[in-house]
Design a protein around this nucleic acid. Structure first.
Lengths: 237, 237
DNA sequence: GTGAAATATTGATTTAGATCAAAGTTGATT
DNA sequence: AATCAACTTTGATCTAAATCAATATTTCAC
């Protein structure tokens, strides 16, 4: 009889291991991290994983599904700061003052892996590779945010929409999903909020792109038809 | 004769020590970090500390003066991602893929302290307090960026300008400078770029604020007169 | 100190996207 | 399968900010 190896390691056998926090770690290291985590907790569509003001207890990695994160202004306005897909880490903005400053809402029925932040910092000091990864994770978030600032600050509506679709396409592709058949999980209003546009503008521009043969639109199912042309929209008025 | 103590520790005696990377570290720890740094390197107004594409060699802390950081889009557009003051760390976005993705330009004659990134990561694994601080530093940058997204995505021009002035005022105040007498080091165009506005709009709104008695404007010297009213501009149309 | 270049202000006009409004469409729930 | 609520599309109109344009002012190099 063959002896089962590492039955206990959930991360070790996870299909997204190399696109998640344990990327590049040894099996032994992953096994250690594993012990501190809660794996694949279900979150129903529309549920909040955490909200503004909650004390930081843990970081979350998306196992399956997707989320939106948003911050609230005192006058009631909100800004969606990102749409997160599998392998992406949520809660990073809470490290700053040990309280969440954003809400994280599931866009579909999802599962997340949870690691207490205290444990995480301990593991970090024991595994320099984990520390290195985490610095990169945080830095990538900053780069991503800066790119969104460029989009929000200087792009026109069509350019924003094209950039958004291309970005989603690339991220789906990295997850072995189709790069051209996009199933959007967010509303037109969410897209607009994220891009600094009104929902009507989002709708109009999707229709226009469809008229021009760049994409086809059936509700939230969008097919990229001419990705090259779509890309050219993002770099020229 | 009195024996001088810790003559070698530059950070140890630095007036901004507690608002900089060594915040909260022991004198011994600071002394260690000190050995790896180059202190108070001068950077002339208009000079680039690093630019997009440069390999990440070091992180920089501003000792005196100020900088703007900006990213460039392939079509020539740019977005200023921040204005940095003393004690703030620059180069964080380069950790992600070990290359700078932004330019950092001195807005006035300035001095910076430089720490090689390799050394920094080693120090981090030896000093858990430093690691903790650095996680917070990176997270704060993310929070700051998210707030700018809210501004760029959903605020009107007047609200943006008011929020900008209040933010600068607070940061000057934290540095023992006047919270009401602001000496701006950036052009109207820089402000506009940062806020997603054109320079004419920046100029007009400053004039309007002055007409309404909220501020007074003499070129780049701006005095906040009615800060309460100014704040109310940021939370209501 | 002088002149040129860079920066800032103000006015007139235009326009991209917001707002207001009215149907459609989708999908969840009973 | 019917119903209701949430979401989406499309049209007409409005408006905040951009653009175009003309001076004014500041700054810096010589």
């Amino acid at each position: 009889m063959v002896k089962p190896i590492e039955l206990k390691s959930v991360c070790g056998c996870c299909t997204i291991r190399e696109r998640c926090l344990p990327a590049g770690l040894s099996d032994e290291e992953v096994l250690v991290i594993d012990q501190y985590m809660e794996h694949r907790l279900p979150v129903k569509k529309g549920e909040l994983l955490y909200s503004q003001g909650d004390p930081l207890e843990a970081l979350f990695a998306i196992s399956t599904g997707s989320f939106k994160t948003l911050i609230l202004h005192e006058d009631g306005r909100s800004q969606i700061t990102g749409f997160q897909l599998s392998g992406e880490i949520m809660g990073l903005d809470a490290i700053s003052n040990e309280r969440h400053v954003s809400d994280a809402m599931a866009l579909e029925d999802s599962t997340v892996c949870k690691i207490p932040y205290d444990s995480f910092e301990e593991l970090e000091s024991e595994m320099s590779r984990l520390q290195h990864n985490f610095n990169k994770t945080l830095s990538s978030e900053i780069v991503k945010d800066h790119n969104l600032m460029l989009l929000l600050g200087s792009m026109r509506a069509e350019e924003k929409m094209a950039a958004f679709l291309i970005n989603l396409s690339q991220r789906f592709h990295a997850r072995q999903q189709s790069a051209s058949e996009l199933v959007l999980r967010m509303t037109r209003e969410d897209m607009g909020n994220y891009l600094g546009l009104k929902l009507e503008t989002v709708s109009r521009i999707l229709s226009r792109f469809a008229d021009e043969g760049l994409i086809s639109v059936q509700g939230r199912h969008i097919t990229l038809i001419d990705e090259k042309k779509l890309h050219s929209v993002t770099i020229s008025a």
